[in-house]
């Protein structure tokens, strides 16, 4: 990754600050994007892809491949960005594209699960799934715990903790009052605590059972 690109990536959280200079630059970039300027579209993508990944994690099923979903959102940006009315609605539009991609993945996962259940009755051998290739065990566990939180609450939490967005920025992106975001964050963190406690309790029970079996 070159220095300029890294600066764009690292600055994606600050690009939410709607100062006059930032807005003017965004408007110019948007105008080029709407005209189909490939370099401008790529720049818009680089500036937004990290928070888009966060939105995908909040809405997609845990087993969904975020890489694939990002590609879907990127493809939609390339092919349909001219539908966006103005620069100010671009982020909202991108978020909806990401949410829709994640929901489609959820539907596909549900269909896949049903198909696998049917296939399991015929050929159990084909059920063996490959282990996830990217996430470390700790992160996998974190994502599993996040998956227990409804997207309504998980999304602001992920945007704040993983992308460093402020409550105001999240409120603008989700188009809801800031106080609502604060309430959802509190609920999300409480749910996460509960999910962690359940996992730890499960481990405790497992350990007790193992000890019981050895005695």
């Amino acid at each position: 990754m070159n220095g300029k690109q890294q600066a764009v990536d690292e600055g994606c959280a600050s690009s939410f600050d709607g100062g006059d200079v930032a807005s003017l630059a965004e408007s110019r970039l948007f105008a080029r994007t709407a005209e189909g300027d490939r370099a401008a579209i790529a720049e818009v993508w680089r500036a937004n892809r990290r928070w888009i990944a966060a939105v995908l994690v909040a809405h997609a099923p845990r087993q969904a491949d975020v890489d694939d979903l990002l590609q879907e959102v990127a493809a939609t940006l390339v092919s349909k960005c001219h539908h966006v009315r103005d620069a100010s609605s671009l982020r909202g539009w991108l978020r909806m594209v990401a949410v829709n991609a994640a929901r489609m993945a959820a539907r596909s996962a549900s269909i896949e699960r049903r198909s696998l259940r049917v296939m399991a009755q015929m050929k159990p051998a084909i059920l063996r799934k490959e282990p996830p290739e990217t996430l470390s065990a700790a992160n996998e566990e974190m994502r599993e715990q996040l998956s227990r939180i409804p997207p309504l609450y998980a999304e602001p939490l992920i945007l704040q903790s993983m992308r460093g967005l402020s409550q105001r920025q999240i409120a603008e992106l989700l188009d809801v009052p800031e106080t609502t975001i604060e309430t959802r964050l509190a609920r999300a963190r409480r749910m996460l605590r509960q999910a962690v406690a359940e996992v730890e309790e499960g481990r405790g029970n497992e350990a007790t059972q193992k000890i019981g079996a050895t005695l």
Partner: peptide, 8 residues
């Protein structure tokens, strides 16, 4: 993961 998704 996001940085790997490149349009260019």
């Amino acid at each position: 993961c996001a940085d790997r998704a490149e349009i260019s």
